[in-house]
């Protein structure tokens, strides 16, 4: 059963056709890889999918309903959470507070509740904090809960971003190059974490440069090149696809 169906997505920046007629469908419970050379349009696809950039063409059906692209917070509420290629944390908030912000979409007490410290507010606040700590534990940085996000190590920042995304209770988690800049140990840890996510029933859309990681982790992989999808298949078939080999030829990744 497909959880997300992107149909004929098109996006242009001035003269650059960053995405051209991209269609792909992600099944519930799978880890779906999106790869391609630098500048292929992977991040742009994320940005369109999560409503950050307006799209020129196409539509997205998520969980059986058309997704309202254009308002990022509604995409999050519909159940898509993401991380960013260039980590975007709330630098001067603690790790715990970062994850607590992630609970915003699933909680509701407003100004009046906050000012009067209503019972509902206190309970909700306690639940938010509890959940944040659970998630920090889940991604393995519980001991850094009170540290400022900006003071975390690079690998821990990536994990914190994942915890914050998980706090929004997504059905689909979209990770934009989560292993970028990680050393081998950190990458191995990340892999364990993502495998755990799948085991816990989450669907994952993974952009990654580390081809070994993608091939080892993903159920299916799509390849973008110059904004077009040139392949979509199980990892082994993609690896041997002549078009893919050609796209990667001469670039550093193998």
């Amino acid at each position: 059963m497909s959880l997300l169906e992107a149909k004929n997505i098109g996006k242009r920046f001035g003269g650059v056709q960053a995405l051209k007629d991209v269609s792909l469908s992600i099944n519930s419970g799978e880890i779906y890889g999106l790869i391609g050379p630098n500048g292929a349009g992977k991040t742009t696809f994320f940005n369109v999918l999560t409503g950050l950039y307006p799209r020129d063409d196409g539509e997205v059906i998520f969980d059986g309903k058309p997704l309202e692209l254009g308002s990022p917070h509604k995409v999050t509420q519909a159940g898509i959470a993401r991380t960013f290629q260039n980590i975007r944390l709330f630098a001067h908030m603690t790790a715990r507070e970062n994850v607590m912000v992630g609970r915003h979409a699933r909680t509701k007490v407003g100004v009046v509740g906050a000012v009067f410290r209503s019972r509902a507010q206190r309970e909700e606040e306690a639940a938010i904090e509890r959940r944040a700590l659970e998630l920090l534990h889940y991604v393995g940085i519980a001991d850094r809960a009170s540290g400022l996000a900006k003071n975390l190590s690079y690998g821990d920042q990536r994990r914190l971003e994942i915890a914050r995304a998980l706090a929004t209770e997504p059905k689909l988690l979209a990770l934009d190059e989560p292993a970028a800049g990680m050393n081998a140990t950190e990458t191995a840890g990340l892999r364990t974490l993502i495998e755990g996510l799948r085991r816990d029933g989450l669907t994952v859309l993974l952009i990654e440069h580390d081809v070994k990681l993608v091939m080892g982790l993903c159920d299916r992989v799509a390849v973008l090149d110059y904004g077009e999808k040139i392949a979509e298949d199980v990892p082994d078939a993609v690896r041997n696809n002549p078009k893919v080999i050609e796209a990667y030829l001469g670039t550093s990744t193998s």
Partner: peptide, 10 residues
Amino acid sequence: EDEVAAKACG
């Protein structure tokens, strides 16, 4: 701190 990330948090 980061408006884009805030939007992404819903």
